[in-house]
Amino acid sequence: MSPSPLAIAVQDLVFQWPARNQAGFRLSIPRFEVERGERVFLQGASGSGKSTLLSLLGGVLRPQPCRLRVLDTDLTALSSSDRDRFRVDHVGFLFQQFNLVPYLSVRENVLLPCRFSRHRRRQALQSASSLQQAADRLLQRLGLDGSLARQPVTALSVGQQQRIAAARALIGHPELIIADEPTSALDADRQGEFLDLLLERCADDRVTLVFVSHDQRLESRFTRSVRLDDLCATTPC
């Protein structure tokens, strides 16, 4: 079976929390598809369920029975530990802030996915002779020079930290990158710079990007823009 052109295929997704409480939080998405290589801007106000959707796509949360395929994998059929493995093998995550583990070095932070995934480690080694080299090369491509590699991460600026986080998301060539407002803590100049680098890397590596933000100014930089409210069937969503 050849891989489907869809990176994400969601149909009739319902997530409710707590599970048996109708009055609780409820997310319901009849249909949401993202093609491979697309760079999607997902817009939504805070509290609209963005983070929940991302957790569902990353296999951290499990929805009620529905169709939820990410990279041709049926996430509803996997056990939680299989989903953990799937996540590290195929998905890179970027968060808003404090993206790094404070007690690890820059390099160790970048290589964190390679520690948990043999797949990512192998992929990283395909283009480099050592993991260190792979990390350093990626950092370089993200505009960070090698002298940072041995500094404590807490000594770095937010902009530098976000680039290191981006390197961690990209290392070992995951097919999907999920970014949850990674630019919201940056000032306007840094935002543009960071976004340029991220989009460029994703385009280079043909990585699918789902980029969540409430900042509409960024919308034009993506191949497609989706409003979460439009995806949802009912409110509140």
């Binding site: 953990d84 404070p102 948990f116």
Partner: peptide
Amino acid sequence: RRELAILRSVGAGPRV
């Protein structure tokens, strides 16, 4: 908790 979330995002299960 942020650190735990990062570990979760790179594939660490709750057991890890």
